[in-house]
């Protein structure tokens, strides 16, 4: 294909992206602390290929929104992305949150800085060529600073459709996806050098390096922790999570483990979901 074709195509894509950035947020006339944008990692939809969309959650300074796991207050951020027939959404990828302890012993797991939630799509082989594909997202949120407010925002994105088999180019937002992926938890592998996570009596114990910071973020279905403010963070590489015994027993230990050692590089995030008798021990 000629250079001219590629230039025209680039201009077209830029125009489409500019058009699609027009949001249709639900506003009540007040400044909203949360805005969402819908972005794509690739510049086009390729039949038979993969597509990665991302919902950028822009937060006003000082505000936070809530992770989908357990928190003492607030409500989890809800995101829904819909695409045209032939584009099937996969499992939404949520970055790991931060702990936020507020006066009164209130522990929340939140996003305090702009976050990217990734929604992978699989595009069917027979997805029609030559069309534009429109995607829309809706985000429902509770955001807090000194105050809490609830709201909804929507955004849309229109992408051109390429020929099947073409290689999609990376968009100008691809860097955002690249920077976010390390904070998306992956399943804790059976073997992870230097990390051991298992039940010891009625405690779920995570052992990492002595200088590692280890944090546990409980999922919504995690058993009730006895004292998560004290137990779920350690700067000495050792967590011993105590659970309250309920009618359904103790646990499960379900959530995300963060292991961070600034001397060794960025933090790693692992998903765990362990009933009392299971063992992910690895040496």
């Amino acid at each position: 294909m000629s250079v001219r074709f590629h230039m025209l195509r680039a201009v077209f894509v830029a125009a489409v992206l500019a058009f699609s950035s027009c949001r249709e947020a639900v506003r009540d006339g007040e400044e909203t602390p949360v805005r969402v944008r819908l972005v794509a990692e690739e510049t086009s939809v390729v039949p038979g290929g993969a597509l990665h969309l991302g919902v950028v959650v822009d937060l006003a300074e000082g505000w936070h929104v809530y992770w989908r796991g357990r928190s003492d207050s607030g409500a989890p951020l809800e995101i829904r992305v819909d695409g045209p027939d032939g584009c099937e959404a996969g499992e939404t990828l949520w970055p790991a949150p931060e702990r936020l302890v507020s006066p009164g012993g209130i522990l929340d797991h939140v996003y305090r800085e702009d976050a990217l939630v990734i929604v992978p799509f699989r595009v069917r082989e027979d997805f029609s060529f030559g069309d534009l594909a429109e995607f829309r997202c809706t985000a429902r949120w509770v955001a807090c600073r000194e105050a809490c407010v609830a709201g909804t925002d929507t955004a849309a994105l229109v992408l051109p459709v390429s020929r099947a088999g073409e290689q999609a180019s990376l968009s100008s937002e691809a860097g955002l996806f690249r920077r976010t992926r390390p904070s998306i938890p992956v399943p804790l592998p059976d073997t992870l050098p230097g990390v051991r996570a298992r039940w010891e009596d009625d405690r779920f114990v995570v052992r990492a390096g002595e200088d590692d910071r280890v944090v546990f973020f409980p999922a919504a279905d995690c058993g009730e922790l006895a004292d998560p403010i004290a137990d779920a963070v350690s700067d000495r590489g050792l967590l011993a999570l105590r659970f309250r015994r309920t009618e359904s027993g103790v646990g499960p230990a379900s959530g995300v483990i963060e292991i961070r050692n600034n001397a060794r590089g960025p933090a790693a995030f692992y998903e765990v979901n362990s009933a009392l008798t299971e063992d992910w021990a690895s040496d």
Binding site: D72, S73, G74, S102, P103, G104, C144, E146, C148
Partner: peptide
Amino acid sequence: PYGCSVKYAAA
């Protein structure tokens, strides 16, 4: 419980 965090003063 669910709701807004109680807006306590810092300790």
